[in-house]
């Protein structure tokens, strides 16, 4: 494996890694590594690992650069041991795959963007591949990603139960503050 170290920040190094190393992410979100496509993976390692995807032309420049970047290309996810936080950009891309998705109405969208859980009355439909405790992408009726949540139902059994059906994890409401 080709390795590259930037020594300016002692606590942060940028490393090129092989795509297969993150194959396990597909267990959390089936097919998510399709996003890697023709990209090169660069990982910024400190206490956590930040995964970035870059094009070949960016890689060429990045290799020539004699200073560590702050961030680069497409921010894919942050990995902290077993804990993975997929980025909101990844939510956008994953929503296009139409897998592990819960579609919510306008009311649900507003609630979710205020960090609230999704209830039965918010759900318009969902994909048929959801199991209890799965990571799901929450989308609005136009299939625009709002963020990620954790399913508290399975598509086989449907959404008859009361209370929260998708627990909020991350959402784009965060962008308003910036």
């Amino acid at each position: 494996m080709f390795m590259m170290y930037f020594t300016i920040y002692i606590d942060m190094r940028f490393i090129e890694v092989e795509k297969t190393r993150y194959g396990w992410l597909n267990r959390l979100l089936p097919g998510v590594t399709r996003i890697f496509e023709d990209k090169i993976i660069i990982v910024a390692k400190a206490e956590t690992e930040k995964i970035y995807l870059i094009s070949k032309e960016m890689y060429h420049i990045y290799k020539k650069m004699e200073k560590h970047p702050y961030a680069l290309g497409f921010f894919f996810a942050e990995v902290d041991g077993d804990n993975v936080k997929f980025s909101l950009g990844t939510a956008d891309k994953y929503a296009k795959f139409k897998r592990k998705a819960v579609v919510v109405n306008k009311f649900g969208e507003e609630k979710f963007l205020y960090k609230r859980n999704i209830m039965k009355k918010h759900i318009l439909r969902f994909t048929q591949d959801i199991h209890q405790d799965d990571l799901v992408v929450v989308v609005n009726k136009n299939w625009e990603a709002l963020g990620f949540g954790k399913a508290l139902f399975s598509s086989k059994e449907g959404v008859e139960q009361q209370g929260a059906l998708v627990k909020h994890i991350s959402d784009k409401g965060f962008f308003v503050k910036h």
Binding site: L53, S55, M58, I61, Y62, M65, K67, H68, P69, Y70, A71, L72, G73, F74, F75, S87, L88, G89, D92, K172, F174, F175, H178
Partner: peptide, 21 residues
């Protein structure tokens, strides 16, 4: 520079190498 990153992510920009310098 953090605000820059949020805006890049929101706007779907993928061809930027940001550096703090």
């Amino acid at each position: 520079i953090k605000t820059l990153l949020y805006n890049l992510e929101r706007m779907g920009v993928e061809n930027v190498i940001s550096i703090r310098t």
